[in-house]
Design a protein around this nucleic acid. Sequence first.
RNA 1: GGGCGUAUAGCUCAGUGGUAGAGCACUUCGUUGACAUCGAAGGGGUCGGGAGUUCAACUCUCUCUACGCCCA
Length: 994
Amino acid sequence: MTLEKTFSPAAIEARWYSHWEDKGLFRPERDEAEPFTIVNPPPNVTGSLHIGHALDNTLQDIIIRHERLKGKDALWVVGTDHAGIATQMVVERQMMELQQKRTDFTRDEFVEKVWAWKEESGGTITGQLRRLGCSMDWSNERFTMDKGFTRAVTKVFVDLYNKGLLYRDKRLVNWDPGLKTAISDLEVETVEKNGKFWHFKYPLEDGSGSISVATTRPETMLADMAVAVHPSDERYADMVGKMVKLPITGRLVPIVTDEHADPELGSGAVKITPGHDFNDFEVGKRAGFAPADMLNMLDAEAKVCQTSDGLIPEEYLSMDRFDARKKVVAAIEAEGLLENIEDRVIQTPYGDRSNEIIEPWLTDQWYVDAETLAQPAIEAVKSGEIEIVPKSWEKTYFNWMENIQPWCVSRQLWWGHRIPVWYGPYKDNKDEWAYPADHYRNGEMFICQTEEDALQRAAEFYGKEVVIADYSDAIASCLPGTEQYRKYLGKFVIWQDLDVLDTWFSSALWPFATIGWPDDMETLPLEGEGRVGVSDSIEGATPSPQPSPRRGEGVRAKPGSDLARHYPNDLLISGFDILFFWDARMAMQGIEFMGEVPWKRLYLHGLVRADDGSKMSKSKGNVVDPLGLIDEYGADALRFFMAAMESQGRDIKMDKKRVEGYRNFATKLWNAARFCEVNGIGASDTLKAPEATLPVNRWIISEVVETLETLDKALADLRFDAAANTIYHFTWDRFCDWYLELIKPVLSPLPPAGGAGGGPETGNEAHDIPTPNPSREREGDETRRVAGWVLDQIIVMLHPFMPFITEELWHSMAADKGGRAYDLIVAKWPDPRAAIDADAKAEIDWIIKLVSEVRTAKVELNIPPGAKMAAHVRDGDADLMARIARQTAALDRVGRLEKVTADAAPDGAAAQIVVDGATYVLPLEGVIDIAAEKARLNKALEGVMKEAKSLEGRLSNANFVERAKPEAVEKARADHADKTAEAERLQAALARLG
RNA sequence: GGGCGUAUAGCUCAGUGGUAGAGCACUUCGUUGACAUCGAAGGGGUCGGGAGUUCAACUCUCUCUACGCCCA
């Protein structure tokens, strides 16, 4: 096989990806090997790959490929998330285009449509992850709503309930009137908006005057239940306890004292609307109002509805909240009770999905006791059981976890995991059809994992036949005369909770529910009393929850099971933007249900921003499509870009030029391989570095050893940028720029252009090549062996970053030898078992320095770069002359120094170069620009003198010599000596120029 | 209000207690048979301002300024 002249990524990417996948190489069977496990943050099933996914998944793939190459049983769990709200919104939006809406369909019909959409578009993102080269275990691809996962979700819900860590409560939630669902605190975004502060006068009932209150939300006065003043506020001391007669509604409400009232703010008195404000809710409770008695004046769409006391005037009903606001203000002004209006910046809550203003609303919802679950999760980070990288995120994690609020997990949506709770009539009224009138979820509750369990539990509880119906049928069944009444006569009807769970409730289980939980769990032998857990007791429909056992108590993963093997995961890589949403919740649920942390390390990366630093967003139109970049530059280039830019604790700015640069890097490697191919350099057959005698070979082996060490360290530290740069510079600067150039004379000992070509250089004494042919052949063989080995090491070390081109080269380099025994993806990580060779390193460093200096001099003296020159060495000791003898061919070919001798230079113009301890005099034929050479030497001298002087200053400082570390002093002395000597040589060279 | 982060070459970013690096851009030169998606050489920075610690600070501490993010 011959490599094409130019590397074209598109030609090989798809081929290698399906090769790997078809051969099952993403999950090679390595039962004996140490496991290494990561789970992929499941993307939205109907989504498509954006630039953030590209970063996140590239980093994970680098790690997993590296671990796989190191021989681990590397498992990268993959799957997609049903993404409740997001997916439902997508489908609803599609319906809108067809002039349809969700409620035109039954719930089942709608959910079916979402499934259909999932089937249609669910493969998009997984296909795109493949294009990026991600080596996930597709053979066990999961979905958060697949059967097994749903079972896990349900079990967690029931178990949490039974442990008392999940409960139903009536309190204020963040209600999204656009989506008509409750959302969690995290899904609310607070935005500062310009608004107003209205000051009203509320008349006292006894006619003795009025009290001023101020509010940013005047419409809520329709549900005011009190006016609060600070207990120490003397201005109002004699008003406390009196009643206020509210304008518009005429409701009588008390003046109460509460710390919440800030005497400095406005008049110092505040109106209290417990049903529509989080602070007021607390004040209301302190004032003795039960949540159930708090007045509610808004419906699910945030339109005005009648309060339970019926006092809101008819004309306000059904008004939008903002229209009601205007009307309330106008009415109060008309009554002469509007004191004044101030401009004010208002913290306004918006729903992150709907962008609607969030309404605090009093409803029954399911809550997780996050505070209890958070404690061991906090402890796990404090103790180091979980290491957060970069460490600076710990503080953010602690701050959130230590102030965590109950987590509202119920959502009034149709797409998601249905809450596994069934309701039935109150037991007290079991002989009648006594369904609660106020709310569908007030009744007996049966919290069970399956319908069958619920039926059984209910039947035992009621002692009668029980059937499950939908909510509307169930309600209808208690109205005599309805069809349902007749149908269910003589039976108890129960119905399932209408709500679904927060998407993050299910994704929090990802690290264990994807790999065998709960089937791979077993119960440990018990001591004493039965353990607390899933309660089977049926003494009541709603058994009182038991206190929570210690984390994971009484259960463990079955030894030898997949779950035991892969939990805890080794690492989680996620964007910091989902630290609270996902990572923290995984930590809580993982510890609670497995008794162990979900992962040993948590790596948080930043956002990929647009090239101007702004956030990418569809509305701004500055979104960069990773697939477009793959088309243009190849997946390898995009991946390398992501790695090279990923430094800890900083966002990444998009830079297409840089992606292009890494495409060029791939091309460079490709061409280096082509060079090897045409020079008979092919695949190596040893892991261990070959034996080498030539300095250049010993040197490059040492460089591999050093590179490998740096690379391993960088990857161990999750320094993706350092890792990428290490392999980049080794490949380009060391291997291509120097090694391949330096071995050319060994590989093809041709006379210069114009010669007959080929064959030994008989009689070509000018080149002074001392080695006879047999030795030349040995050197050639050794060099080919070493070069082939080094290229292999590059291919392996680069593979985690650039999997496609490296796999391609891995195979093509072995084509002549009958191919490779295995694919690169499952090859072995380098293990050179060689030491750093200091002598070889010194020699090659010297030749690099000398050649570079010669080139510089040529440019500055306007000598054609290709011109061959002779050099006369001054002050060269025997070691140097031996070195020169060894490197004659390289000095000639690479340095264009065709003759380097210790002879004195002839009189006349010459360029002079100082390297290490010697001066190289290069006689110049014809006219030389003496002035230019003088300028050049002077410039060099200036630099050296400056350094020497600075070192001298430091050394003459007694404090430095006495107090600095001895090594530092020693180094300064040595450097000073070097610089001084170099300066002397440069001065001598200048002197010779006259 | 609290917390975090960032300010280093024209741009995007690394970096270490001992007087600064990369990629891109820029300048000059280049058909040395791997590579112009390249090669060689070069110019360019008082490392945001101020103060402190230290023999020594871009690097540590404090402070100020600017920008960004998170929480309330």
